[in-house]
Each structure stands twice: as structure tokens, then as C-alpha cells.
Lab assay of single mutants.
Amino acid sequence: LVRYRTISKIPQITLNFVDLKGDPFLASPTSDREIIAPKIKERTHNVTEKVTQVLSLGADVLPEYKLQAPRIHRWTILHYSPFKAVWDWLILLLVIYTAVFTPYSAAFLLKETEEGPPATECGYACQPLAVVDLIVDIMFIVDILINFRTTYVNANEEVVSHPGRIAVHYFKGWFLIDMVAAIPFDLLIFGSGSEELIGLLKTARLLRLVRVARKLDRYSEYGAAVLFLLMCTFALIAHWLACIWYAIGNMEQPHMDSRIGWLHNLGDQIGKPYNSSGLGGPSIKDKYVTALYFTFSSLTSVGFGNVSPNTNSEKIFSICVMLIGSLMYASIFGNVSAIIQRLYSGTARYHTQMLRVREFIRFHQIPNPLRQRLEEYFQHAWSYTNGIDMNAVLKGFPECLQADICLHLNRSLLQHCKPFRGATKGCLRALAMKFKTTHAPPGDTLVHAGDLLTALYFISRGSIEILRGDVVVAILGKNDIFGEPLNLYARPGKSNGDVRALTYCDLHKIHR
């Protein structure tokens, strides 16, 4: 019993810090008490220290592992850092350059016999395009090294910054494609005289377009951006097909006994025919423009016929181009109408809503002055909100995010209106959640004399007048207030005048 009563005193000691020596009952000389009392004092002292730490809000209350900052290894790049964003855009520009100039170089340097010394005699450094290609190869190699040090988000939505895990993730992902696209074939085969082989191998750079397509997928929600990307894709495919079309004609031209190829026909049409040795002929500019003209006309199913396939190889390629053109029509131009419709969806919704308003007016036989006010209010409210119901949009977000959005939407009023000066951010967040926005066209009466005042109004834009009878008592403008002081009276009061809008007004109100 003594032991039980001794232990039962522990909660009292913990909360009230009572010393055991003052209790005459606990001072009985028993061996059990002498053993338990020192333990009680020690526990009391420890609990006292913990309570003191909690009340003082000291940093040592938290466990040590929670006080440590997340460790980022040296030379690790955050995937959302500004440097990584700028670097990704730079790589994107280099990939676009590669997609345009690599097929052009591979096709127009394929057994090209233009006048001038061969590239091997001039030297590697004197070729501007080769120098640019070398810079692109170096940048792609540097990009691989950067990807080995860039964080990523795993399946659990955690940012991984450990170098080993980053390397394994990159090896399992895009490393092989990036490595093949970054191989400097110019340096590996330079001086061997195989410019045709170098041009063909350099087309491996186009593998990076797969990554670019995935990154550009984030802009699919913007109709104008999608339309622009589709047109660029169409032009890029036409450019690639033009390079292939020229390569076919250029390879067949020296081996044909009869002059029936499209390059021969082009030379005869523009007065620059090929001679018996295969030299001469149109310039590279004429060849490229004509090839691009043929691919565009074939892809769009126009086909004027002034550039036509004559050999079997050219006919087979033309059939493939027609098939590609039909697929592009289905996948690209078939979506253009939907994209344009999405661009004008706001206008369509406006006309639909206006039609419903006019049908309501016609069905209920609203008189002319009231009908005009109804239409003007709808037009003004639509121009202010673009038909978007803010309350319906915010309803799907958590309250903390709703408060931040409301604070942002009402920031101008909260910053410049005098009653809100000096208020804490928590108070402003709470008030912003209570605001209701209303609009009024010129001549609209917001409050009639004798109406119950259940709200306090803040003028965000425009001006109003307060009338008693036919006498203008006051004219209020931006950041002015009218209405009933909230919670100042037990019952809502009545208006002693009319409140009429002089201009288009936007008002925020808080109800009782």
C-alpha cells in the first residue's frame, strides 16, 4: 500500500512540481520508500527539464536528425535550378540546329562534286560548318556529364541527390541515346576521305529529338503553341524528305545512260545542264529549293507536275512521300480545326451564355430598361472574369491554397485601402477568403433606401454616388468604403439613402 501511494504521487509531482519531503505519510521509514524516492526525484528532475525545454521552444527539443539540413553532394545540380533551365534551352537550340543542318550536310555532301578544292585539302579548321559541328559534339558530351550530376524525382516524389543513384537512373534511361548522339564521328573518321560515311553517321544526332519531343509535351495545353509546333514538325519532315529526294537524284545521276532524272530535267529547265562528264548542272541553292518544293507539294497532295519522278527509285520514294503525307494530314492537320476551336472556345461560351440571357429575357418578357441593365451587367461581368467562376475553380483546392490565391487576387485593395494598413498577414488572409466580388454598370442602383444592410462594401474600381431623395450626399471612388460596420450592432440596419454607380464599378463586399 505504501508503495502504491508513493507511485500514485508521481503525476502530481510531474505537473505541480511538489516535493515529496513535505508529505508526512511518505516520510515513514520503510525500505521500499527509501529505494523508490531517489528514482522519483530523478524522474521528476528529468520531466521538469523536458517541460522547461518545451515551454522555452528551444531548438534542442527536436531530434538531432530533424535539425540537420538535407545534404547535397558537391557538384550536384538541382533539376529545378536556373542554371539547369538555361542549359536545357541551350541544348534545345543545338538539337534544332542539328535537326536542320545534319540531314542537309549528309545529303548535299554525298558524292558532291561542286567546283573547288576537296575538304581534305583545305583542312578541318577552315570549314565553318565542321567547326560548328565540333562545338555541338562537345556541348552534347558536356550535357552527358551534367546529367550524371543532376537530381531527379523518383516514384515516391522524392528528390534524389545521391550521385550513385543518379548515375544508375541515367544509365537506365537516356544515357545510350545521348551517348550515340554525342559521338564525334568527324574526329574519329577525319582524314579518311569518307565524307559520305561521316554525313550518314552524323544523322545519329537526330535521336535527341525524342527527348525534345517529350520536353515539349508540357506545352500541349496551349493551343497556339501546339499549332506552332505542328507546323514546325511538318516543315521539318518536309526538309528531311527534300534532303533524301536530292540524295536519290544525286546518286543516280552519274550512272544513268539517259538523262531522265529530276536533276537533269531541272538543269535543262533553268539552262544549267550537266555536261557529258557529269559536272556542271544547277547550283546547290536551286537543287535544295526545288527538292523542298517537290516534297511540300507531295505532302499537301497538290502535285503540280513541273517536278516529277521519272526513275524507279524516284517513283518509289514519291509513293512513300504520299503515304507520309496522308498520315500527316490525319495526325496534324486533322487537329488544326480542334485547336482553332479551342482557341476561340471563350468567344463561343460568351455567345452561348448571351443567347441564354436573351432567351430568358424573351421568355419572361423583361421590360426594355431592365433588359438593357441585365445585358450590360452580363457584358461587364464577362469582360472582368472571362466567364470563369472563381468560386467553382477554387473549390477543388485546399483552404490554405485558397487563402493564398484570394490574398493575391485582392492584393491591390488590401495594400491601398486604409482600414487594412497594419493588419497582420493572417488577418488579411482571413479577410480575403470572405470577400465576394460584384460588378455594376453605370446607372445601376446597388442599394435602395430602406434596404437591409448586411454587408460592408469596398470599391475596387469606378465611382458611385450616394443620394437622399434627389440630393447627392457624397461621391465615392476607388478604395472608399460604404455599408454597415460589421458586428457593431446586434441587428442589421437599414439604408438611409440610395447608392448608384456612376461608372463601371468593381466592388468587394463582406457579409455579416
Rank of each mutant, 00 (worst) to 15 (best):
Y65G: 05
P70C: 05
I72W: 14
R74H: 07
L78K: 14
P82Q: 10
F83W: 10
L92P: 01
I96V: 12
T98L: 01
A99N: 01
A99E: 01
F101W: 15
T102R: 01
T102Y: 08
Y104F: 14
L109W: 03
L110N: 15
K111N: 04
E112H: 14
E114L: 08
T120R: 15
T120Q: 07
E121H: 15
V131H: 01
D137T: 08
D137I: 01
I138S: 03
V142C: 08
D143Y: 01
D143R: 01
I146E: 01
N154D: 12
N156Y: 08
E157I: 12
E157G: 11
V160H: 01
I166E: 01
Y170V: 01
K172Y: 06
F175N: 01
L176E: 01
L176Y: 05
I177W: 10
D178S: 01
I183T: 06
P184I: 01
F185Y: 08
F185C: 05
D186N: 12
S194Q: 14
E195T: 15
G199Y: 03
K202W: 01
L206N: 01
R211P: 01
R214F: 01
S220N: 09
G223L: 04
F228Q: 01
C232E: 01
H239G: 01
L241H: 01
Y246G: 01
Y246S: 01
M251A: 13
Q253P: 03
R259Q: 13
R259W: 01
W262A: 01
Q269A: 11
Y274P: 01
N275L: 05
S276M: 05
G280Y: 01
Y288D: 01
V289H: 03
F294S: 01
F296W: 07
L299I: 03
L299V: 01
N306C: 03
N306P: 01
S308M: 01
V321L: 13
M322W: 01
M322Q: 04
L323C: 05
G325C: 01
M328K: 03
F333E: 03
F333N: 04
I340D: 01
H351M: 03
L355N: 15
R358V: 01
E359K: 04
P369W: 03
P369L: 03
L374S: 03
H380S: 14
Y384Q: 13
M390Y: 07
A392T: 05
L394N: 03
F397W: 08
P398I: 01
L401A: 03
I405L: 03
S412N: 10
S412C: 07
L413Y: 01
L414M: 08
C417L: 14
R421N: 07
L428D: 01
L428W: 05
L428V: 07
L431M: 11
T438W: 07
T438H: 08
A440V: 12
P441V: 11
P442Q: 14
T445Q: 13
V447Y: 12
H448S: 07
A449C: 12
